[in-house]
Simulated assay, not measured.
Amino acid sequence: MRAPQFWRTEGVASRLLSPFGLVYGALTRVRLARKAPRASLPTIVVGGLTAGGDGKTPLVIALAKMLVTEGERPALLTRGYGKRSGRCEPFAVSADDDAATVGDEALLLSRHALAIVGSDRAASAALARELGATLLILDDGLQSRRLSPDLSLLVIDSDYGAGNGRCLPAGPLRAPLEAQIAAADALIVIGAGAAGRRLAASCAKPVFQAQIAPEPKAAKALTGKRVIGFAGIGRPEKFFRSLAETGAEVVAARSFPDHHRFDEFDLAELMALARRHDATLVTTEKDAVRLPPALDSETLPISLAFTEPGALKATLDAALSRARLSRVS
Rank of each mutant, 00 (worst) to 15 (best):
A128Y: 00
G310A: 07
R38N: 12
A221C: 14
D104T: 04
R327C: 07
L270T: 04
K238C: 05
A274V: 02
A253M: 08
F208N: 04
L109P: 05
T69M: 07
A311V: 01
L304H: 13
A170W: 07
R34K: 10
Q180G: 04
D263F: 01
A221R: 13
M271R: 09
I156T: 06
P236N: 10
V207W: 11
R324A: 12
L77S: 00
A218C: 12
D140Y: 06
C88D: 14
P206K: 03
G53V: 00
V68W: 13
K238S: 12
M271A: 12
P74E: 07
E285M: 06
L273I: 15
G247L: 04
D150Q: 02
R129K: 11
L154T: 01
F20Q: 03
G229P: 02
E215V: 15
L41T: 09
R146H: 15
G21R: 08
T50D: 01
I44H: 00
T246Y: 03
G47R: 00
T78V: 01
P58W: 11
R235M: 10
G165K: 11
P37W: 00
F265A: 12
T78E: 00
H112K: 14
G141L: 03
L59K: 07
R129D: 08
A179D: 15
L295E: 13
L154W: 01
A170L: 12
E215S: 14
V328A: 12
K217G: 15
W7T: 04
S329A: 13
R322V: 05
Q5W: 09
A184L: 05
G229K: 07
L281D: 11
A221D: 15
V289N: 05
H259P: 05
H259N: 07
A113Q: 11
S94F: 11
E249Y: 06
L114N: 07
E298H: 15
L59P: 06
H260M: 15
S18L: 13
L136N: 02
L295K: 13
T280L: 13
D185M: 03
L295D: 15
L270C: 09
D157Y: 11
R322W: 15
T280M: 08
G118T: 05
L267Q: 05
K56S: 00
G25Y: 03
R261M: 12
T57F: 09
G141H: 03
H259I: 03
G52W: 00
R15C: 13
T9A: 12
I212E: 01
P214W: 00
G224F: 04
A192K: 15
S40L: 15
S144M: 09
K56F: 00
